[in-house]
């Protein structure tokens, strides 16, 4: 039996080779507990773990770690996200210690959306480190038991080492430019020590398949668990917006056509998503799916059920 990295439910399921399901839970822009509570109930028993976003699109929200602790108390397993935009290496490491102290076990390391997209475009960006350096920092804290500066993680010279242990995740975008560099970028994250990957939302299945083929041909799928990202479409307008205004999202004309012809875009969105998941399950190297139903958490259970992925396995 191999040693566990963090002992999270997500880690156990991935190790067991279960096709895992994760979803996203965006914290509210106020201290409105009910928003979190209703999202928690929508996702309860429908997914294996939930990503808690960190000021996503550079808009101030309840912090990812505190929401993660709240969600964990409600019985869901969080994957708290950490971006490099708002905090330097001191603040991030302090937060990692605090997250571990409070029982969180999965972290997702991100660069973070540029502040110009959010509601404080005049803020000073940090980017003291980037996502790849962040992965390495979290891994060194866990495996080498040292801070980024090289000091051991102990309270005093005589105290025992007590390191924070996390299953380390990161994002990958198979669709950004330069296209031919995307698998290399994944490999850099693998070299930095990432354990699992959640991809940018996929609409171009052919391109994703090509990317996966190269991932598999390099054997990277054996070093990192890859969860394919999906975002269910709610309307033709949303689809066009994502095509025209969200960098790094590729939407083929055939998908646009499909939604133009659809009588009910929401139903079609769910159907498309379910078809995608069924295809992912047959693809070599895909270890699960990450469902980013943006402000549409109620759709997740239906998608997971229609994809024949309910009930979710026991994590013990």
């Amino acid at each position: 039996m191999k040693n566990s990295k963090a002992g999270s439910r997500l880690e156990k399921l991935l190790d067991r080779g279960e096709f895992v399901v994760t979803a996203e839970l965006g914290p509210p822009k106020s201290v409105d507990r009910e928003v979190i509570d209703s999202k928690v109930e929508a996702l309860r028993d429908a997914v294996d773990a939930v990503n808690i976003t960190d000021n996503q699109t550079a808009i101030v929200r309840v912090s990812s770690i505190s929401t993660g602790i709240y969600v964990a108390e409600k019985g869901l397993e969080p994957i708290f996200q950490v971006t490099c935009r708002d905090r330097n290496r001191l603040a991030i490491q302090a937060d990692l210690l605090g997250a571990c102290l409070n029982g969180l076990k999965n972290v997702l390391c991100l660069t973070g959306d540029h502040q110009s997209f959010g509601n404080h475009p005049q803020a000073k960006q940090v980017y003291d480190i980037d996502s790849i350096q962040l992965i390495k920092m979290v891994k060194d804290m866990r495996d080498e038991k040292i801070f980024q500066c090289g000091e051991e993680i102990r309270n005093s010279k005589k105290a025992e080492i007590r390191e924070p242990r996390f299953l380390i995740g990161a994002a990958a975008n198979p669709f950004a430019d330069p296209l031919e560099w995307r698998v290399n970028r994944l490999e850099k994250k693998v070299n930095a020590g990432v354990d699992f990957i959640q991809t940018q939302c996929i609409y171009d299945m052919e391109r994703f398949e090509q990317w996966m083929e190269e991932v598999v041909s390099r054997g990277l799928h054996e070093k990192v668990k890859i969860l394919a990202g999906v975002t269910p479409i709610r309307s033709l307008g949303m689809l066009r917006y994502m095509r025209d205004s969200v960098a790094g999202v590729r939407i083929p004309d055939s998908v646009i056509k499909r939604f133009e012809d659809a009588e009910n875009a929401r139903e079609e969105g769910i159907n498309f998503c379910v078809e995608q998941i069924k295809r992912f399950r047959k693809m070599k190297g895909v270890a699960g799916v990450h469902i980013m139903a943006i402000e549409w958490e109620n759709a997740v259970r239906g998608i997971v059920e229609s994809a024949d992925l309910l009930p979710r396995p026991n994590g013990v």
């Binding site: 660069t111 980037d130 430019d177």
Partner: peptide
Amino acid sequence: SKGLMNGPCGGSENG
């Protein structure tokens, strides 16, 4: 724009 040392990030499109 983010001063990354290990880019490009996922927001690079058509150069």
